[in-house]
């Protein structure tokens, strides 16, 4: 369990984290989502005691990380895949970390095997690919068989098989009753892996809710309607609480009325409707809705990444929404 209370970090006048409070519970995967520069990594570094909070506090399993007698058994962290001496072999890196806690060599071999690093374990870590570096970072995090696992962008640079492996691993560990705190910029990954989401933007918590709740709660259900008489149906449907957007000559997007209601209006007025599709709201939609005001680094070419991506969101909604 991780508990942050009014946790804040200011770097030379710039607020990275502006007093956040949240709880990461055991037995589930908690996703930590936010745009670049939102404060995810800073928050994770403060949890691990690498950065000292400007104010507020954070505890892991009941106390500040540094106060634990066996920190590697309490928390395993992958914060930066490059937290390795480039000239040292993966095996010796893990062996040196294990030595601090008297973790036996057998466990070092075990995590090497678990992460699929056998073939490269004796090679210098500096020559590792991004994906191999991530595997080594995960191996180091698992070394103490910790109760809490903190992973910053763990699937970054992994191949599809590696992504699947991380997903299964964290789900398995969460089922074992462990606390999993996972950051990712891949919302599809979050939708498939996380149970609970904490969304951060510009150093503030924007949302802290179960994944299903965030998807359902942020955007009203929409229905795609295809009809021969789009303009006519649009006028018939228009009333309080219902918005109708005409995206194509024969297609309407209706918000505020369910498909059955739309069909009734069409039937009563003799309008032919040849498609009536409920639009699944995706985590991606929800995320862009939540963070549209919080994105720190806007791209001005396309009117901002959120806006650009939102236009394409309905097309990908089916892929992510189920």
């Amino acid at each position: 369990m991780i508990e942050a209370r009014d946790l804040a970090k200011v770097y030379g006048g710039k607020t990275a984290v502006a007093g956040v409070s949240f709880t990461v519970r055991a037995g589930q995967v908690t996703g930590f989502l936010g745009p670049n520069g939102a404060g995810k990594s800073t928050t994770m570094r403060m949890i691990m005691g690498l950065d000292r909070p400007t104010s507020g506090s954070v505890t892991v399993n009941g106390r500040p990380y540094a106060d634990h007698k066996a920190p590697l058994h309490e928390v395993g962290a992958l914060l930066d895949a490059k937290a390795v001496h480039t000239s040292r072999s993966a095996y010796n890196h893990l062996l040196a970390m294990a030595a601090t806690h008297g973790i036996p060599k057998a466990r070092v071999h075990e995590v090497i095997e678990m992460t699929g690093l056998e073939a490269v374990a004796r090679k210098k870590a500096g020559g590792f690919s991004l994906g191999m570096g991530q595997r080594l970072g995960i191996a180091a995090a698992l070394l103490g068989d910790p109760q809490t696992l903190i992973l910053d962008e763990p699937v970054n640079g992994l191949d599809p098989e590696g992504v699947l492996w991380v997903r299964n691993l964290v789900r398995y560990l969460a089922n074992q009753g462990k606390t999993i705190f996972l950051s990712s910029h891949l919302m599809s990954e979050m939708a498939q892996t996380a149970d609970h989401l904490i969304v951060i933007g510009r150093g503030r918590i924007i949302a802290d809710a179960p994944v299903k709740g965030i998807i359902a709660g942020t955007r009203q259900a929409r229905t795609l309607v295809r009809t021969d008489a789009a303009a006519h149906l649009s006028r018939l449907l228009a009333r309080d609480g219902v918005t109708v957007d005409q995206s194509e000559p024969e297609a309407l997007t209706v918000t505020g009325l369910d498909p059955r209601g739309i069909a009734q209006v069409a039937l009563a007025n003799g309008v032919l409707v040849y498609e009536l599709t409920p639009q699944m709201s995706s985590l991606e939609d929800a995320y862009f809705d939540l963070t549209k005001d919080e994105v720190e680094y806007h791209s001005h070419l396309t009117g901002g990444p959120a806006a650009a991506a939102r236009e394409t969101a309905p097309a990908t909604a089916g892929k992510y929404g189920r």
């Binding site: 007698k69 066996a70 920190p71 001496h85 008297g102 068989d145």
Partner: peptide, 22 residues
């Protein structure tokens, strides 16, 4: 703590050994 990872905490002797390995 599972047996394979051991259950000892940080000891100064362990930290010395770690730095020696490094």
């Amino acid at each position: 703590i599972s047996s394979s990872a051991g259950s000892r905490g940080v000891t100064f002797a362990g930290v010395l050994r770690s730095e020696w390995i490094k």
